[in-house]
Design a binder for these strands. Structure first.
Lengths: 161, 161
DNA sequence: TATTGTTATACTCTATAACTATA
DNA sequence: TATAGTTATAGAGTATAACAATA
């Protein structure tokens, strides 16, 4: 059995969750968790399309935005923001450094920790990504009017809190 | 370097996404996608707690509910509902069968496909899970009043559509 | 030819645990 | 002792590709 080698960089496919015609969804349609999941997948697909070819994922986007807005943040704090372990934050940082988007600077006061900073290239990259992601997010949000969108954000914040 | 062997069944940890004090979240707080993600993680944690010790995950829960409400469904259709590949639907089905929750029945009309059915044990298991998940979902939803909850579900459906 | 299920394999993300250097 | 970063390793989840049986 001979198999083609898979392409080296396969982006996570994550299909949309289709509403299968004629299927009984039973309790799922009453669960907030399931409704949130469906909406989130829709937003993720918009994100994915907006960043096509940039090798970006939501955690990478979040990391770059957070570093941009909080220069000199440590890897541990970055992991905390993302809700991942330190080891994962390190691999993520390695990725950003390898692409020349971020640099690690030694802290004079605490030589255990790195301070993370966007490079010039990183700044430009983040600015471009932000524009695209914002636009994609807004296009999806256009299914709602301004009042509805404000209300939705308010209710989501209450839920997450 | 001697390492302890990890426990055989390690449940996915998925930490809550903490709001780190004093951190600038920049554009993230304006993005619907990020707000949805935070709310969804909160709901997932409630789900996880409600099903502790049952080895259940959201896809497994969805699969069992869907099979219960749509007996004789095929593995391919199940995969479609979940948004995963056929091969994944098969592994998921193997898991349910191995635990005696589901059985595969040959279809007289199409001998390629299996029809999936809950066993007696599966029926009881799903009923118990549904009660727990519903209760956990409702506890989280209690952060909202009845009108807000209805409105939220409506807006989420609009977004996902 | 097309579809269902299957097998084999690979890859991403993330975890835990132990190690190192600093504090 | 405690913490930041690092390294090594493991596992869950899901993908693609090829195959056999059936339509």
């Amino acid at each position: 059995m001979i198999r083609k080698p898979p392409s080296p960089h396969r982006p996570r496919a994550l299909a949309p969750i289709p509403r299968v015609a004629g299927l009984d969804y039973d309790v799922l349609d009453e669960l907030l968790g399931y409704s949130l999941r469906r909406a989130q997948v829709a937003l993720f697909l918009a994100f994915h399309e907006a960043t096509r070819g940039m090798e970006i994922t939501p955690p990478r986007f979040t990391a770059l935005v957070v570093i941009g807005a909080n220069p000199d943040i440590s890897q541990s704090t970055l992991g905390e923001v993302l809700g991942i372990a330190r080891s994962g934050a390190m691999l993520l940082t390695d990725w950003m450094v390898a692409r020349g988007l971020v640099e690690r600077r030694r802290r004079p006061d605490d030589r255990r920790a790195w301070g993370l900073h966007l490079t010039r290239r990183g700044e430009r990259f983040v600015a471009r990504m932000k524009r695209r992601v914002r636009a994609a997010d807004a296009r999806r949000a256009a299914a709602l009017n301004a009042r509805e969108l404000r209300e939705l954000l308010r209710l989501l914040a209450k839920l997450a809190g």
